Structures are given as C-alpha cells and as structure tokens.
Simulated scan of single mutants.
Amino acid sequence: MKFEHGVYLVTEPSGDLAAIVANAVAGGVDLVQVRDKGASTGALIEIVQDLRRRVAVPIVVNDDLDAAQHAAGVHVGVDDLPPSKARRVLGPSAIVGWSVNDPGQLDEVEEMRACDYVAASPVWATHTKPDHQPPLGLEGIRAIAGRTDLPVVAIGGIDVARAAGAVAAGADAVAVVTAITRADDPRRAVADLVEAVREGRGRR
C-alpha cells in the first residue's frame, strides 16, 4: 500500500456522501474507508458500488467482511475480526488495514503479516469515536513507526493544523473524518492536508 499524497478519508453517514468523496478524491485523497456502524451489509455494498463507479482510488470497508468482498479491502479494529481472518477470506490482493491502539500489537506476527498498513489510533481524542482507547500522542506514532516497515496511518483528532506534526513523527499518511466531511469545500480541505503532509515529510 503506497500513500502518494498521504491523505486517507474515513467517511461518516451523510446524504451528500458521493459528492464529498468525489471532491475529496479530486483534492488528492489516496484511499477511502467507508465507515457507517449503523448501516446494514446490503447498504454498505450499495455505497461501495456507487463510490467505485465515481472514483478511481481504492475503497475499503470498516469491519464488515461481507461488504468488503465488494470493495478493495477492509479495515479492522482491535475488537473486530483479526486481520489474518480477513486476509484468508479476501485473498492476497485485498487491502487489509488494522488499528493499533498499543505498540504491543506489533508483536502479533501472524496478524502483522496479514496487514498492508497499520493505523496508530487514536493519536488525539476524537468525538467521532467517543469510546476510543487513550490517545497515543506523537510519541505513540514514533513508537509504532519505529517498529514496523508497514505504512503507518495516523488517525484520531487529525486536522490540517496537526497533520504535519503527525507525519513528522513518522506517519506515512493521516486519516481524516470531519476535517474533510464537514468542510465547506472538501476538495480544498484535502489539498491543504496534502500540503501539510508534504511539510511533515520535509521535517523528518
């Protein structure tokens, strides 16, 4: 998995989802994760299929393995199905991402081998997931990035003001929800995030 621009969109339920995603991709998003904990598998499949017709970047699904079979892959959390199971079901060409709440997860060799990237989660507190684990902070990103060759995505409380710092700490990309989905101009918001990622890479 290569994050060219370093911006990863995680969606939230919205009546304007297709337009938001299309504009975000036009701004430079590398990967889109469809996340809607209240949606049925059938609804998720419909969303994925619609987005795949509209944009060329990979679309992955949060947690739902059945819906993920209609997408480019899946992202799973610590309390979801393990990455190794996702890999067995989806096959070698699928994208499999895993949220890392504790650097100790990196010692789980079988699970790490199944992943294409890991997400340091959460870096900062975020209201989009109020039941999250304690924030890792920039030191958490450094700890995770220093122990794996997989791409590391920083997620949780990321906005344009924090993106450069997260990347300078070792993240290869930033995963963003509301700073894109609730922006007046999602395309511009992503372009600003891409610039912040570029700045962060220059500070390493």
Rank of each mutant, 00 (worst) to 15 (best):
L81Q: 07
A71N: 09
V176G: 00
A24L: 00
V123M: 06
R162M: 09
A143E: 15
A169G: 07
V194W: 11
P186W: 01
T181Q: 02
G28D: 11
Y117F: 12
P103K: 11
A145P: 08
Y117R: 00
A189E: 09
V78E: 14
R87Q: 06
R88D: 10
I59F: 09
N101D: 09
R87E: 05
D50P: 00
E110D: 15
I95D: 01
D66P: 01
A173E: 03
L150T: 05
D149G: 01
K37R: 14
E195C: 08
L65F: 13
A163W: 07
P134H: 13
R147L: 06
D192N: 15
V174Q: 06
R187L: 03
G91R: 14
G140Q: 02
H127M: 01
D107E: 13
T128P: 05
V74G: 12
I20N: 06
V48C: 03
L17I: 11
V29T: 05
R147C: 00
G156Y: 14
V25R: 04
D63I: 09
L150Q: 01
R188Q: 12
A145H: 02
V57E: 07
V123G: 04
T128S: 15
A183C: 04
A183M: 09
P83I: 01
V74E: 12
D63S: 13
L44H: 08
V76D: 04
A179T: 08
G140T: 05
L51D: 11
D131H: 12
H132E: 15
I141Y: 01
